[in-house]
Design a binder for these strands. Structure first.
Lengths: 228, 228
DNA sequence: ACAAAAGTGTTGTTCCTACACCCATGA
DNA sequence: TCATGGGTGTAGGAACAACACTTTTGT
């Protein structure tokens, strides 16, 4: 059943950059293509936008297909539409990036993807289409935003130690941070809730914290500025 | 001559939010619609993306149609695709925002627009479609970015006085800024070139400056951070 | 001389940075 | 008691904020 229009239309797809933190490594979920074009190369999860589907909904749909996870943080990244970016025709792709907590959530292997894997950002293979460019933009956006908005907590488990939070920023920003000054800065913001202590560790147990979203939003109303 | 596809496709349009600074007022270029839907309401300039046209190129095309100006700063803002945002069907709009210098450039009245006008952001009429939402997002982006990237200069004439620069930030951010501290901060960045003086003003003539883009890019390479 | 806007000196406070040190736990 | 990572004290300097003051022009 064909669809006919008076003027030509491009196809519209959604691609999702899914970031996860594993120890000291930032990883991204990629899928090895089983068909041409770009057969065997790695690509971002994505697909066509359904008729009358919201774009963000499409992003959530792709995310859930690949990871089984719901309620994940996603944010629109950028829309790519350069002619020739897809050899099959004029394809416009709205890219979203997602931040997922690999510790708490079980990632199911996707049903329809032959080979989906978490790959380190520092050890990336060749990517299909313009997906390298898209991924680079996502990394740039993550680096830029993580300092001014409390995005980082999305990558951490519900309860985390100060050192984990610091490690996260060091990984994402690619810099070393002074422990003392980092704690002082975060503490002054008063956006963390104490959540008990670590147990069974071979050193002084760390106090665990969670991000206090209500308090953060309260502070935002009165001109507070998150900044690392 | 109809175009036929195997699966349904949304239409893709580009809308442009064109900001200009006039004295102490931030203005936006809007067009009064002459046809349904939303006849007589004001709307952002925009139109369909041509086959195999780059998105940013489409934005520049719309911008030039309405203002006659070339080489203007544009940046992709966000892509809007909520079902129902256009009563005529599934229309996905990629929004761009542009910053234009109203002092230097002659804005020609658009040929195809019945009524294009620069309207103050503080005195906006009802807008067509979801254009209010799009405009709000553009303002938010402008406010957020102007502090961390040297966007503001795009709104000023080539040569400007310190007080104009300060006025710009006061207008965009909606705050008062201390003259002394503002000067000190900007001067420390060393990103301005002296360009002579005002003449024929009934007070001490201000030194004129231009934004030194080369120097700025030089500084950026060595970890410099623009911040107001 | 006066109005008007340009431009400067200075001071108290807050924040940033760097470095050294102490603490609690399991092995 | 030792290794390991958690957590704190503090001091010097840079950046911020506030306010009063001087300078240069046209009328």
């Amino acid at each position: 059943m064909p669809y006919t229009y008076k003027y030509p239309r491009p196809s519209v797809t959604v691609d999702v950059i899914i970031f996860g933190l594993k120890g000291k490594d930032l990883k991204v979920l990629l899928i090895q293509r089983s068909n041409d074009p770009f057969k065997d190369l790695w690509a971002l999860p994505g697909g066509f936008v359904d008729p009358d589907e919201e774009l963000e909904e499409a992003a959530h749909r792709e995310l859930e297909e690949e990871t089984g996870a719901k309620g994940i943080f996603v944010e629109q990244l950028y829309t790519f539409g350069k002619p020739g970016r897809d050899p099959r025709g004029h394809v416009i792709s709205v890219a979203y990036f997602a931040l997922i907590n690999l510790a708490d959530i079980k990632i199911k292997p996707a049903s329809d993807a032959k080979d989906a894997q978490w790959l380190k950002l520092t050890e990336l293979p060749k990517l299909a289409f313009d997906h390298k460019e898209i991924l680079d933009k996502a990394i740039e956006r993550l680096r830029g935003k993580v300092r001014y908005q409390p995005l980082g907590f999305e990558l951490l488990p519900e309860k985390f130690a100060f050192s984990q939070l610091q490690q996260l920023y060091e990984t994402v920003l690619g810099v070393e941070i002074n422990k003392r000054n980092f704690r002082t800065k975060i503490n002054k913001m008063k956006i963390l809730k104490e959540e008990g202590q670590q147990t069974e560790v071979a050193h002084r147990p760390a106090v665990l914290y969670s991000f206090d979203k209500d308090k953060y939003e309260e502070l935002m109303k009165s001109g507070f500025n998150f900044e690392i």
